[in-house]
Amino acid sequence: MDAYNLDSLNAVQTPEGIEINLRLAGIWPRSVAWMIDTIIRGVIYFVLALVVNQFGKFGTGLLLISIFIMEWFYPVLFEVLNNGVTPGKKSLGLQVVNADGTPIGWSSSMLRNILRTVDFLPLFYGVGLISMLMNDKFQRLGDLAADTLVVYRQQNTSESQIPEAPALHLPPGLNLKEQQAIITFAERSSQLSEERKEELAGILSQLKPAGGSMTADELIRLANGLAGR
């Protein structure tokens, strides 16, 4: 095996030619999301049972029908009408999408949720667990059949801000990735220790042909320039 960059991203190209990296969600958050959804359904059944208890055998029938409907359509309705997000998935920031990143529709949602029965075999998701551990995109059999993915919803970028500072123009000749690295440095500088910041900035001293070492403050000012402030 050669050196390579292992990552849990899935690159998708839109018709406009833009490449989007879907951030695939694996078995850990998905099992927690499933657990939350199951608990929610359980609570609903419990409350329902208390209510329909008043109606005797008719109530039992009503309860069984509603359990049937809930078990099969709870995920489907949420996924289709709520943009691929069930309450459990919402609490973990997950979302179901088609393999090309588009919102999930009725047929694929039905398919992936009906095949839960297969994933559930032999007992408690044995097949689904093995499938998700072995598949490169963390898909269970239902996902494979419906060609769907579970991904993290897009990151909320407002939490990482470039600190305000008088802007400096960046020297020419830096490519996109290098410019992005400078911006990332500025965004995350508040989480780094002072020594580490200066050490990192010192690596880029070549950006100053006049000599002297680059300081973290100067890098942040450069990032401000890049951000167009």
Binding site: L6, D7, S8, R23, L24, A25, G26, I27, W28, P29, L92, G93, L133, D136, F138, Y152, Q155
Partner: peptide, 11 residues
Amino acid sequence: YPWEAMDLGIK
């Protein structure tokens, strides 16, 4: 994300 980092472990 922490969850994402754990998923990387599977991979």
